[in-house]
């Protein structure tokens, strides 16, 4: 009998979690009508929007900064937090240059935060769970303690833990952190691994080649953005 009730409770919990999870998935079809209830309730935020930007090695950072070039940092998207993977000094440097060109001051208008890499190239699979955990904890600190309004990412591996953690406040109805994903210009016919993993969970999934929208109906194509 005891086992039966245990099972019942477990099933009820599981169903609640699944239903709730389903509720917080992005509603792409109602995006244009904007009458989806959960959408409105959690998104009456007025600007400025606290923005989190995930940078990644080399090409990803270059594309990201190109995307942000014309974005209004002074009245709409501030303060900004750049998430950079530990060893990637070049990306931090590029972000600093980019911001100072716009006349912004570090630690006032924007900050740069480092997270450890989820997995080094060639790292053994046995130690990988630990390093993944380490980077998840770093993301909890960055995302949950600060609750940004918006996360922008474009495909480096580090955007996966960031997006996962961003779902927690959404799940509990605390805050709907908007997730915007832009697939790299380099992806013509196939998505990157990050893209494949995140496409169903982000609020906007933008690609830069039209062919990908045929293959992945959730993706939007509006032209080359970088």
């Amino acid at each position: 009998m005891w086992n039966f009730w245990n099972l019942c409770v477990f099933i009820i919990f599981l169903s609640i979690i699944i239903i709730r999870f389903y509720q917080v998935l992005p509603r792409r079809h109602s995006r244009h009508s904007r009458h989806s209830r959960s959408y409105n309730k959690l998104n009456n935020k007025k600007p400025p929007f606290k923005t989190c930007i995930v940078l990644g090695s080399g090409g990803h950072t270059m594309e990201m900064l190109q995307l942000l070039k014309g974005v209004d940092f002074n009245s709409l998207y501030r303060p900004r937090k750049y998430i950079v993977t530990g060893s990637d000094i070049l990306s931090s440097e590029k972000a600093r240059n980019f911001e100072s060109h716009k006349g912004n001051v570090e630690n006032v208008d924007y900050i740069i935060q480092l997270v450890p890499r989820s997995r080094e190239v060639g790292q053994s699979w046995i130690t990988t769970p630990f390093s993944v955990l380490k980077s998840l904890i770093a993301c909890i600190r960055i995302i949950l303690f600060d609750l940004p309004d918006l996360v922008i990412c474009n495909g480096p591996g580090s955007c996966i833990p960031v997006c996962v953690i961003s779902y927690i406040p959404r799940f509990f109805g605390i805050k709907w952190i908007k997730l915007i994903y832009v697939e790299s210009f380099a992806r013509v016919k196939t998505l990157s691994l990050s893209g494949k993993l995140l496409i169903s969970f982000v609020d906007r999934f933008i690609v830069q080649w039209p062919y990908l929208t045929q293959k992945y109906p959730q993706a939007e194509y509006k032209g080359i953005l970088v």
Binding site: P47, K69, G70, V71, L76, L150, K178
Partner: peptide
């Protein structure tokens, strides 16, 4: 030439502006 306004529009639209 790259059109910066496309991404700005996506952002602003998504944030309900």
């Amino acid at each position: 030439k790259s059109d910066e306004t496309i991404f700005i529009d996506i952002l602003n639209e998504e944030m309900g502006l």
